[in-house]
Write a protein that binds this DNA or RNA. Sequence first.
DNA 1: CTTCGGATTGAACGCATGTTTAAACTATAG
DNA 2: CTATAGTTTAAACATGCGTTCAATCCGAAG
Lengths: 193, 193
Amino acid sequence: MRSISEQSTPARIRDAAIRAFARDGYQATIRAIAAEAGVAPGLVIHHFGSKDDLRELCDAHVTTLLLDEKTQGAATIASIADHFVGEDSPPLIDYVRRMLNSDSPAATALFDRLTEATRRMLRDQQAAGRIREDVDVEALAPLLTLYGLAPVAMPALLARATGRETVDATALEAASAAMLPLLSGGLYGDTSQ
Amino acid sequence: MRSISEQSTPARIRDAAIRAFARDGYQATIRAIAAEAGVAPGLVIHHFGSKDDLRELCDAHVTTLLLDEKTQGAATIASIADHFVGEDSPPLIDYVRRMLNSDSPAATALFDRLTEATRRMLRDQQAAGRIREDVDVEALAPLLTLYGLAPVAMPALLARATGRETVDATALEAASAAMLPLLSGGLYGDTSQ
DNA sequence: CTTCGGATTGAACGCATGTTTAAACTATAG
DNA sequence: CTATAGTTTAAACATGCGTTCAATCCGAAG
C-alpha cells in the first residue's frame, strides 16, 4: 500500500519527531509527533521504545545528516547553513539550536567534529602565512568554533542584530562575512594582506 | 516570626523559582519551587497568580539585577560574569542561559541593553584611535554582542573548549581574554598597538 | 478580648502526558 | 485457503502537572 519512493513508517515518525522537537523543543508531545506522522501514539512507542530513545535516535540522525553527508573534511559552521535552506528536509537549524542548549552528548560530539574542522582550516591558513606564527591555532580552534556557533544558538538575537525578520542561511552567512575579515585583519591592524 | 534581615515570603519564593528555573529550566515544577522556598504549592499561585506570571516576574527581576545594580554605563558581557561568582544570590548565569534560549521578550531586552553598552565601548575605542576609522562600529556592536554571549549561552561547550570541568567566572573571563586581543590585532596584523 | 482580613496549608480537581494493552488489520509463507 | 507474525489502532491506565478550594492560622485594628 506504500510506493517505493515513500519512506518507511519509522522513518516518517523520525522525521516528524525532528520537526516537532525543532519547533517545540523536547516538550513536543508524542501525540503531536504521531499526528504529524499520521499514525497512532502507541505506534511511536512500539517502534522506538520510549520518547527518550526516540530523541537519542533523532540526535544521532541529525548529527549524521550534518557531518557525513557533505562535510567530508569541510564541516565548517558555514557548511551547516547549507542544510537549512532546503525546506524539504526537516528544519535542521532549529534542531541544532535545541541540541546546543541541551548539554546532550550529541551536542558535544557535534562540537568536537566542528572543532576538528576549524582546527584543520586554521592550520592551513597558518601554513599559508595568513595567520601569524605566534598564534596558538590548536587552542584557538575550539574557542573560535564556540563563538561561531552563536548565530546558530541564538537565531532570534541574530535577527535583531541584523535587523531582519527571519533567520535563513543568508543571515548566517552575513554574520560570518562581517566577522571573519575583522578576525583576520583586526580592528586596528592593516587589511592589506 | 520573621526577623527584619530575612526576606519576605514572596521574595523567598521568587529566588527559589530563579534557582529552580536556572537548574531545571521552565520545566521546573511549582511543587519543587514551593519545596525549595519552604511553602505550600498553593501559596506560590496565591502570590504570583500563575506559573507564567511567576516566570515573567523572574525574568524582569534577573534583568534588573544584571543591568541596574552595577552596570550604570558599563553593562558589558564581562560585567555580567561578576554576578556569577557569589553563591549567595541565585546562579544567574544559568538563568541567563535559559533566557537566551527562550526567545522571551526579556532576552531581547537584555540583548538590547548589552548592545548599547558594547556600542558605547566601541565608540570610545574608535575615538581613542584604537579602532580604524573605516570600521562601522554601529553595525558591529550588535554582532559583537551576539558572539560575545556564546560562552554564556553554551557553558558546557565552553568547558569543553577550555578543558575545564566546571564553568565559573574565571572561565568566562579567560574566553574573553583569549578572543579580545585577536579581535584587536587580528590574526595577521601586528599587535604593536 | 474580639473581630476580621490576609497568609498559609493540605487536599482535591481536572487535565495532559508517556506508556500499556488487547484487539483488529495485513501481508506473507506453507 | 489457512496460519502466523508483524503492524497498527483505539482505548485505557497511571502519574505528574498547574490550579482551585475550603479550612486554619495569625497578626493587627477596634
